[in-house]
């Protein structure tokens, strides 16, 4: 048994590496992009708000699985060709940016108008107000919702399986099919649990640190 685990572990860990790579790159790109889009969503420029709302609706209203398939198998039909990994990144970043934008929009709107006015009579610029006053408050407000999405992302990353990327789930599935054994799938489950546990702990730590003010 132990010997079997040792035998399949390298393949599973290689898959984990792919899972983590999708996870981190999606987060690193989507969170800032989402924050910027949210600024657009709360702006007074109606055409921009409209375009962003349509984008949000498309991304949140269709399955991520469809978006993945669309980018990798669909777009080549009109001559836009992505490598597997790039296709996954494009689909994940576009999708998660939409979710993060909605979360940040809610956060921006829950900062009282008086805070902006207070900054304005002190003659801070819009940029200074956003950086020093709004973003720290929004960050604290959105933290729990961001945490949810982060954990979802760990699991959603398994969808890349459908475009043939060798992630954790695929590695487990391959081993199970080859060896007719449940062990690989159980190990896959344990690794996902470990990943989400680490995320939960890190998020809790960040939340605790942000609780120095209320």
């Amino acid at each position: 048994m132990i010997q079997y685990i040792m035998q399949i572990l390298p393949a599973l860990l290689a898959g984990t590496k792919m899972t983590l790579s999708i996870f981190f790159w999606t987060l690193i790109c989507s969170i800032p992009l989402g924050a910027i889009l949210a600024l657009g969503l709360v702006s007074n420029f109606k055409p921009l708000v409209w375009v962003l709302n349509v984008y949000d609706w498309l991304m949140r209203g269709t399955p991520l699985l469809l978006q993945l398939i669309f980018v990798f198998y669909g777009l080549p039909v009109i001559g836009i060709i992505f490598q597997r990994y790039d296709a996954a990144m494009v689909a994940f970043i576009l999708n998660y940016t939409a979710y993060f934008a909605e979360i940040f929009r809610g956060g921006f709107q829950s900062v009282p108008r008086g805070q902006f006015e207070s900054a304005r009579v002190l003659r801070l610029t819009y940029g200074q107000t956003i950086r020093k006053i709004v973003i720290p408050q929004v960050f604290k407000i959105v933290l729990p919702s961001i945490g949810n999405e982060v954990i979802n992302l760990v699991k959603d990353s398994s969808l890349v399986y459908v475009i043939g990327l060798g992630d954790l789930l695929r590695a487990g599935n391959v081993a199970t099919a080859r060896d007719v054994s449940l062990v690989p799938l159980v190990l896959v489950g344990i690794i996902y649990l470990a990943l989400t546990a680490v995320c939960t702990i890190v998020l809790k730590m960040i939340e605790k640190r942000s609780n120095v003010w209320r």
């Binding site: 009282p112 805070q115 006015e117 207070s118 009579v121 720290p136 408050q137 604290k140 003010w213 209320r214």
Partner: peptide, 13 residues
């Protein structure tokens, strides 16, 4: 300079 009715201090500072 202004002192608002509800003060509007910045809670994060």
């Amino acid at each position: 300079g202004v002192v608002f009715q509800d003060y509007q201090l910045f809670p994060n500072l």
